[in-house]
Amino acid sequence: MSAPKTGTPRVRADRDVCIGAGLCVMTAEEVFDQDDDGLVVLVTPDPAPETETAVRKAVRNCPSGALSLAEG
């Protein structure tokens, strides 16, 4: 039995680590944006369930490792 699903995990973005590559914006623009300096801005830290696959891809592909998920 797998544990009951508790919703999409919360996203964290570390702007000190971000290099502004913008891959997250290309992958899930509902959740990620860039400010004028090119650095990541979270549109929301709690992504809608339908964006979970895209969010996981964005976290995995982030070149600088600035993104992470707060998995329960």
Binding site: I19, A21, L23, M26, T27, K57, R60, N61, P63, S64
Partner: peptide
């Protein structure tokens, strides 16, 4: 085709001009 390959590198030196 999907993002996730290494043609632009990875890490802090990931291609600046990729977009």
């Amino acid at each position: 085709g999907a993002i996730g390959h290494l043609a632009f590198g990875h890490g802090v030196h990931h291609c600046l001009g990729a977009p």
